[in-house]
């Protein structure tokens, strides 16, 4: 691990007035990694994305991209970056090709080289037959692909994507993810994305979980899930607090109440389910049992459920 990290972030803080958006974040991303920041809205993902993409200065702390300081050499950093925004940065009134041309010019590409690069990204993202269509006539999934094509035109070493699957149906999301994996494998591009979708984070090499401005966990999806003690059992009952105490006393564990259910992490969960139902007949209304997911990792780390009610619309996978 002697290589210069693609991204090195040290003790990064960002305040908005008195509100703290990032409270001392540390991490490295190595070249060629596909890295996800997972967290609920308001967790600090977008702030981190804005800082890394040079749109927002940090309040304190340091951030480097391929060894270039974001503060001292923003120009050098920018030339390595490809950025895909949550809100499209396409000009809807222009054609796909016109959007690519303007983008290329901003990165000093022109003439034959620009035409070749444009043809290449359009081919790669299967957009060739849409080259001369005005962007506003394209579907949402198609626009995302143009957005990605734009981000790749100047062959960035680091691709930053903010909630790339927003507004995509599951099929389009899978396709998009497939492009990212291909990009990492074939070109060695380092990719950092933010997401609130477990599924999407699951497919990345490493995942950082952001909660209230802090990086509460950072590891591979499998290692994160291994942190949760075995299986995850959720129990619903009429008198939850009472049952909670009884279970704690009888099984020597510490159940938590999350989202109206008792939540227990336990090895050999299937046996525990049987024992609980037998021990408290009539009190248990329902039991669900499963292997831990990244959502369980989040609850395990923070003691909070991942979603509040207002965010549930984004949950449908």
């Amino acid at each position: 691990m002697n290589a210069v990290p693609a991204v090195r972030v040290t003790n990064l803080y960002r305040h908005y007035g008195t509100r703290v958006a990032l409270a001392g974040v540390n991490f490295n991303v190595m070249p060629g990694e596909l890295f996800a920041f997972l967290g609920p809205n308001g967790g600090g993902k977008t702030t981190l994305f804005k800082i890394l993409s040079t749109l927002l200065p940090a309040s304190s702390g340091e951030a480097e991209v391929f060894g270039h300081s974001l503060v001292q050499h923003p120009h050098a950093v920018r030339s390595h970056l490809g950025v895909v925004f949550q809100h499209p940065s396409l000009d809807l009134k222009l054609t796909v090709m016109e959007n690519l041309q303007h983008h290329g010019h901003l990165y000093g590409l022109r003439g034959k080289l620009l035409r070749e690069r444009a043809a290449e990204v359009l081919r790669r993202l299967s957009l060739v037959d849409r080259t001369n269509d005005v962007v506003e006539t394209l579907s949402g999934g198609m626009q995302r692909r143009v957005e990605l094509a734009k981000g790749l035109l100047h062959k960035p070493k680091l691709l930053l994507l903010d909630e790339p699957s927003t507004g995509l149906d599951p099929g389009a999301r899978r396709d998009f993810n497939h492009y990212l994996v291909q990009l990492r494998d074939q070109e060695g591009v380092t990719i950092i994305l933010t997401t609130h979708i477990m599924d999407e984070a699951e497919r990345c090499d490493r995942v950082g979980i952001l909660h209230q401005g802090q990086l509460v966990a950072l590891d591979t999806p499998d290692a994160l899930k291994a942190q949760v003690g075995g299986d995850v059992i959720a129990i619903r009952a009429a008198r939850l607090p009472e049952l909670c105490d009884k279970i704690a006393a009888r099984f020597d564990c510490a159940p938590t109440v999350v989202d109206g259910a008792l939540r227990v992490e336990r090895l050999r969960g299937h046996e525990f389910v049987r024992e609980v139902v037998e021990a408290f007949p009539g009190e248990v209304q329902s039991v669900t049992f499963g292997r831990p997911t990244l959502e369980d990792v989040f609850i395990h780390q923070t003691g909070h459920q991942f979603w509040t009610d207002t965010e549930n619309e984004g949950r449908a996978l």
Partner: peptide
């Protein structure tokens, strides 16, 4: 600047 073409311009090395 917030949700459009300019976002991309602002992160470009210009």
């Amino acid at each position: 600047r917030k949700a459009g073409f300019l976002q991309g311009v602002l992160v470009a090395p210009v």
